[in-house]
């Protein structure tokens, strides 16, 4: 290796960074045999569940960051249901589920108590799906941001209400079929609205830290959790977690779809501090949005049986959204 030559640790094809190539201290938390296993095996998530992966990655990393001094608060949703069918639980952290809409506020109460009792070494993490975050829990979350309460709030975004049978949420992308936005009529699937970009809304609160990530890039996700846990105040992490059930994708395709969402530009992976974007993850190998849409049956109405584009108008509008993201977050800059 010559000096100045960029070093890239990933495998051709998957772009996954292999731990085997890294020094032990650079390896992921997940590769560590002594990880907390905060969300341990035996839970009842679907095969290929992106949220189960995301939660395990996030929680184990947060446990590493806090030396095991962590309390987790969970909104109602898939994650809550599949981890705690009474009398079993998959959680190996102190964990509280109250309601759908109040995870942020419950976490505020936990943080306030720890502060009042002088137990500030114990940290608080709240987690919810996209429905619990961008829709029903939005007011509570905005309150948490505005007060800058010492909570890391993690949204596992699978872009619809999967727990209740795939209904549209405020985070459902345009054209996606859900049970309440069927692929019928001249404008099939979810209408093209204005969008509800929670990371940008979080940034508008000027909170210390906002980041997005996907379950495809474990190093990146873990690094963001570790960074968030070095900070205090309200921090927001938005993780894209594909859902085979709701997206109509193969369980084995979860990681690949998360990667394609990023590589197409439809999902921007970035970090922001105090309201300003400080970093974004460049697209390594740009793909057209069709490459991301085609493997998902929620977009089946955009393609014919051979996979050819049936609705170039709609695909074009989706590509325009990706292009806008690319421009806004400078996603095609060369990786440094």
């Amino acid at each position: 290796m010559t000096p100045g030559q960029p070093v890239r640790f990933f495998q051709v094809g998957s772009f996954a960074a292999g731990n085997r190539l890294l020094a032990p201290e650079m390896r992921t938390v997940q590769s560590d045999a002594t990880r907390a296993n905060s969300l341990t095996s035996g839970h009842r998530a679907c095969q290929g569940c992106g949220e189960a992966l995301g939660a395990r990655y996030v929680l184990d990393t947060a446990m590493r960051a806090t030396g095991g001094r962590l309390i987790a608060v969970n909104a109602t949703g898939c994650l809550e249901v599949f981890t705690t069918p009474y009398p079993e639980t998959s959680w190996r952290v102190p964990w509280l589920h109250s309601l759908f809409a109040n995870a942020a506020s419950v976490a505020t109460g936990v943080a306030a108590t720890l502060d009042a009792q002088g137990r500030n070494e114990v940290r608080v993490l709240a987690q919810a799906g996209d429905g619990g975050t961008v829709d029903i829990g939005f007011a509570a979350l905005s309150g948490l941001f505005e007060r800058n309460d010492d909570v890391l709030y993690v949204c596992y975004d699978n872009q619809a209400y999967m727990n209740t049978g795939v209904q549209r949420s405020g985070a459902t992308p345009p054209a996606a079929r859900t049970a309440t936005t069927e692929a019928l009529g001249p404008e099939p699937g979810n209408p093209f609205g204005q969008g509800k970009n929670l990371p940008l809304i979080a940034m508008a609160h000027n909170i210390p830290y906002v980041a997005t990530a996907t379950v495809a890039e474990l190093h990146d996700l873990e690094a963001k959790v570790l960074k968030a846990m070095t900070m205090h105040g309200a921090r927001y992490l938005h993780v894209l977690v594909p859902c085979p059930l709701g997206w109509g994708s193969a369980p084995a395709a979860t990681i690949e779809l998360a990667r394609l969402a990023k590589e197409s530009g439809l999902f921007a992976v970035f970090e922001a501090e105090r309201g300003e974007v400080t970093a974004s993850s460049s697209i390594r190998h740009q793909v057209p949005v069709e490459a991301y849409l085609r493997p998902q049956s929620r977009y089946r109405h955009l393609f014919d049986d051979t996979g050819a584009v049936l609705r170039p108008d709609i695909v074009g509008r989706l590509q325009a959204l990706a292009d806008a993201n690319i421009a806004r977050f400078d996603l095609l800059k060369s990786a440094s």
């Binding site: 309390i71 608060v73 509280l96 109250s98 309601l99 809409a101 109040n102 942020a104 506020s105 419950v106 976490a107 505020t108 109460g109 936990v110 943080a111 306030a112 108590t113 720890l114 502060d115 009042a116 009792q117 007011a139 509570a140 905005s142 309150g143 505005e146 007060r147």
Partner: peptide, 24 residues
């Protein structure tokens, strides 16, 4: 004592729920 101004009654009781479950 921590006095918390919240954005709704729903959140007021939710904060109390989190606090009580943490031992406050």
């Amino acid at each position: 004592c921590r006095f918390i101004n919240v954005e709704s009654e729903f959140s007021a009781l939710s904060v109390a729920i989190g606090a009580s479950a943490t031992g406050a």
